[in-house]
Design a protein around this nucleic acid. Sequence first.
DNA 1: GGCATATACCTTTAACTGATAGGCATATAC
DNA 2: GTATATGCCTATCAGTTAAAGGTATATGCC
Lengths: 115, 115
Amino acid sequence: MGQSNPSFMNGVPELLILSLLRRREMYGYELVQQIRAATGSVVVLGEGVVYPALHGLEKDGALKSHRKTVEGRSRVYYALTPVGEARLTELSGVWAKLTQAIGDALGGVAHVPAL
Amino acid sequence: MGQSNPSFMNGVPELLILSLLRRREMYGYELVQQIRAATGSVVVLGEGVVYPALHGLEKDGALKSHRKTVEGRSRVYYALTPVGEARLTELSGVWAKLTQAIGDALGGVAHVPAL
DNA sequence: GGCATATACCTTTAACTGATAGGCATATAC
DNA sequence: GTATATGCCTATCAGTTAAAGGTATATGCC
């Protein structure tokens, strides 16, 4: 029966979220903006991607959350756990290996320089 | 209505196929093995990915094919067209921009060195 | 001859991810 | 009081890729 393994390209949203949370704890809405900012709008993840990812990571024990009310706003802050740090290290390694492999395969393909 | 844009991560199979075909023409079965070899088995695309991609690229005018019988084997060789070269340049640029953006966002995340 | 394996082409099917679109609530600005 | 920005969340859909199967020929082996 057709059962697909997750594609080799997946897990980047997770990777970005974990890496941003490594620096400091953040809440979901903030992450959406920070991902946009950190990638120069090359990667733009909507809330419909970020929130489910946060919930999944918390369920896996990679994040822990606590509510805090700031300026009359109730926010759910997420912080990395040791499990999350390990996950980040792992995903980062996979990503590095992947990009290097593809870079090697591309060899000297000229691309239009980013303007 | 829910209409998904293609994910920012897509198009890598196409990119790999085009980049390998830039060096020399190949047939589908050969591409499957060359992609595996060129990426050190980091990226392994099955025939179910490669053949449809080839057909799509040909329909777009990015590739042209011709049948050739070699060693009693009937093979369909694919070669890049100018359209395909342009496509390769474009995809390569997108990929470079993407990996750089993600690399920047990751900043100094230590990853386990590939063994 | 009969069988397994490797080559070579292709399609069908389905899972998974991520994108879109919404719904809810509060605060502030006009 | 209405619009906009913040902040959380879920439901649903679509595109891409993965897996599996289906056909056919060639070669090596018993």
